[in-house]
């Protein structure tokens, strides 16, 4: 079943266990907080189409397990990722301290041009904050990352994080900095143009045929 979009971007969500990666993804796709989120085993998959600068971009998102032992499996998903959300928990310095390692992994295993946005999650728990906005922002700037503080609970900045990351990738494509045709770019052209030529009736007839098997 084909879909209508201009680009497809592969995304990753990475960061320590318990920082709220799955909840961010759930909030982004479902627009609500996942109360009973169990820890992720290996990877989980999610997808959503968003509208960025008048383009329809389909995000295929791999939500990875944070635990160290799963690293050998989750690493294989880095290859061919166009963008990544690197998540830490603002109430846990330990998760912030681990960022360098995650960053090294991502830069080494994904494409050189991977666009990364740093997300300081659990913004709603400001009373328990262990990492200030300022120092995280400085880290982001030093490592050429975009940066936002997010809350998967309230939804604050969650959509923005994905959209900003996608927008930066689109800009890079337009400026020629990123070449979607290059192998492992994590970017594919959609079939929007192709789809527009087809009449809805024919499309329906075709899908009916497909389902009949």
């Amino acid at each position: 079943m084909s879909e209508t979009y201009d680009f497809l971007f592969k995304f990753l969500v990475i960061g320590n266990a318990g920082t709220g990666k799955s909840c961010l993804l759930h909030q982004f796709i479902e627009k609500r907080f996942k109360e009973d989120s169990n820890h992720t085993i290996g990877v989980e998959f999610g997808s959503k189409i968003i509208n960025v600068i008048n383009k329809f971009v389909k995000l295929q998102i791999w939500d990875t397990a944070g635990q160290e032992r799963f690293r050998s499996v989750t690493r294989s998903y880095y290859r061919g990722a166009a963008g990544a959300l690197l998540v830490y928990d603002i109430t846990s310095r330990e998760t912030y301290n681990a960022l360098t390692n995650w960053l090294t992994d991502a830069r080494m295993l994904a494409s050189q041009n991977i666009v990364i946005i740093l997300c300081g999650n659990k913004k709603d728990l400001d009373a328990d904050r262990e990492v200030t906005f300022l120092e995280a922002s400085r880290f982001a700037q030093e490592n050429e990352l975009m940066f936002l503080e997010t809350s998967a609970l309230t939804g604050e900045n969650v959509e923005e994080a994905f959209v900003q990351c996608a927008r930066k990738i689109l800009n890079k494509i337009e400026s020629g900095e990123l070449d979607p045709e290059r192998m492992g770019s994590g970017i594919q052209y959609g079939d929007a143009a192709l789809r527009q030529l087809r009449s809805p009736r024919r499309a329906q007839a075709q899908s009916a045929q497909e389902c009949g098997c």
Binding site: E30, K48, I50, F56, A192, Q196, R198
Partner: peptide, 19 residues
């Protein structure tokens, strides 16, 4: 919802779908 011009509603349809 195969109408390709109504792309906005299409993306909403996807959201609804995953819901």
């Amino acid at each position: 919802s195969p109408d390709s011009r109504m792309v906005k509603s299409l993306s909403e349809a996807y959201i609804g779908y995953s819901k």
